[in-house]
């Protein structure tokens, strides 16, 4: 892999993902108001936030899908917006709310992604077969991805992101709409990937998953980072959920409203 060369030369001094002052506004609404984040190489990084906090917008800007109004994003030292070819070759991405080329079968989709990444066809064939096997997608055969279940779509999306052996994996809501069995499988694969020297950044609002997997956590709300650090630093001696609700400032039902719900 091309990534092996960078590993020893310059990438080790750099964070796997470094965001500086990323900002984005849509019309009048500020979606992301200046996000700074340094994801250390080899970390398992959880980006937590309520719905609408700007997680997807931040990650989209970090991987080159959405042009930021201000700030910069670097992958292992390479600027995503100034030197996209280098940066993107080190990146594996699984966006959320984005369709795959779902009128291909699983194997076809993997072949497409592999060749788009400039991989050797023989390697693509071998890795695709292996990934489909591990992710239990071989049985789907030639079923088009559009006919997959939600969990299967997540798995094939992950396979596409992993295929070229990226150094940094950015996953948007990888556990959304996934059944427990598939979730366990995805967790397992990600864990192995980090153990093998990779870096994972993923967004989620499922506390248990984040607590179980992550070495580092950042809490994003209203377009800014509220808390950031290792899991133990952020959590302290409380549960992550308590910290999260406190930071985000949720409200609890008093029992007075919605009384018509009970007969």
């Amino acid at each position: 892999m091309a990534g092996a060369g960078y590993r020893r030369t310059m990438t080790d001094q750099h964070p796997a993902l470094h965001l500086r002052g990323l900002a984005k506004r849509f019309d009048t609404k500020v979606a992301v108001a200046g996000v700074d984040l340094a994801v250390p190489t080899g970390s398992f990084y959880g980006l937590l936030g309520p719905n609408g906090a700007g997680k997807t917008t931040t990650l989209s800007m970090a991987v080159g899908l959405l042009r930021p109004d201000a700030g910069e994003a670097r992958v292992l030292g390479y600027d995503v917006w100034a030197d996209p070819v280098r940066a993107k070759s080190l990146l594996g991405v699984m966006p959320d709310g984005v369709r795959l080329f779902d009128r291909l079968s699983g194997a076809e989709l993997l072949a497409y992604h592999g060749l788009l990444r400039g991989m050797d066809p023989a390697v693509v064939d071998q890795r695709a077969a292996e990934l489909l096997d591990v992710l239990a997608l071989t049985d789907a055969g030639r079923t088009l991805v559009v006919d997959y279940s939600a969990g299967m779509k997540k798995k094939i999306g992950l396979a596409c992101a992993l295929l070229h052996g990226p150094r940094l994996l950015v996953l948007d809501e990888p556990f959304e709409a996934v059944d427990p069995v598939s979730a366990a499988l995805i967790r397992d694969i990600l864990h192995r990937y980090v153990t093998g020297g990779g870096t994972v950044v993923f967004s989620s609002h499922v506390m248990e998953v984040v607590e179980r997997l992550c070495s580092h956590v950042a809490i994003l709300a209203d377009g800014t980072i509220k808390r950031v650090g290792t899991l133990t630093e952020v959590r302290g001696d409380r549960s992550l959920e308590d910290v999260f609700v406190e930071v985000v400032g949720g409200r609890t039902a008093t029992g007075e409203e919605l009384s018509w719900l009970s007969r």
Partner: peptide, 16 residues
């Protein structure tokens, strides 16, 4: 669902 698989599956590239 799509039509039943037709012919040998072959490698991923061959299918694409």
């Amino acid at each position: 669902p799509a039509k039943a698989p037709r012919g040998a599956l072959g490698g991923a590239i061959a299918q694409l």
